[in-house]
């Protein structure tokens, strides 16, 4: 986590007062942090555009930044929600949801399903192969289910932390996390 220092508060005040160029300090300091969050959630070729969208949203909502939590937490919230919006739009335009497994991926999935070797999963299949199958399953979940599953199951956030990041109720996150895990299970065992 990146600390919110006193000078940062001063920079934020300057930006709110109209010094647009002062935003460059925040951009330089947090670009790696935002790329890390966004890069895991969206396709490689979309990372730059989504990260840009995150910083634009952050700039526009800077007057609403209360300073109660560190700016890194606030940026993480914007980044996660922007990624969720990206998937919502992508599914609406059927850009990703209709994509099907390639022949290789289908073969791989079949091999994984029929795997009786008892060997370590990671020993038998390469990380890239596993990611392809995971990506296939994630692309078949709704934007909300996908986001919750990534946060809670794959990244290890608690339901409370995920609720804070998404701005949802704790009950909603718990229900969605449970349902999305069931969906992932059925997708991987089809």
């Amino acid at each position: 986590m990146i600390d919110n220092s006193g000078s940062e508060t001063e920079i934020i005040r300057r930006i709110i007062d109209g010094d647009v160029n002062a935003f460059e300090h925040l951009l330089k300091k947090y670009k790696q942090y935002v790329f890390k969050i966004v890069g895991r959630r969206v396709p490689y070729d979309q990372t730059e555009d989504i990260a840009q969208e995150v910083f634009i949203r952050a700039y526009q909502s800077l007057p609403n930044f209360k300073g109660i939590s560190p700016i890194s937490n606030w940026l993480a919230r914007i980044a996660v929600r922007t990624c969720c919006d990206f998937w919502r739009k992508a599914y609406k335009s059927k850009e990703f949801s209709m994509s099907s497994l390639t022949e290789n991926q289908e073969n791989l999935l079949e091999k994984i399903i029929s795997d009786q070797s008892g060997q370590e999963f990671s020993e038998r299949w390469s990380q890239k192969e596993v990611y392809e199958v995971l990506n296939y399953a994630l692309n078949r979940l709704s934007a909300e289910d996908r986001t919750v599953l990534e946060l809670v199951y794959l990244e290890g956030y608690s339901a409370k932390e995920a609720a804070d990041l998404l701005g949802w109720s704790l009950a909603n996150v718990k229900i969605r996390a449970f349902r999305s895990r069931k969906k992932l299970q059925s997708l991987l065992s089809k």
Binding site: E24, L27, K28, K31, Q32, F35, K36, G39, R40, Y44, T47, E48, A51, Q52, F121, S122, W125, Q127, K128, V130, Y131, L134, E150, Y153, L154, E155, G156
Partner: peptide
């Protein structure tokens, strides 16, 4: 573990100076 490792091992883009 394999799914988590694959998820975290995904190659991600790096911010360049032109992007900034």
């Amino acid at each position: 573990d394999a799914l988590i490792a694959a998820y975290h091992g995904k190659k991600t883009a790096e911010p360049g100076i032109y992007w900034e």
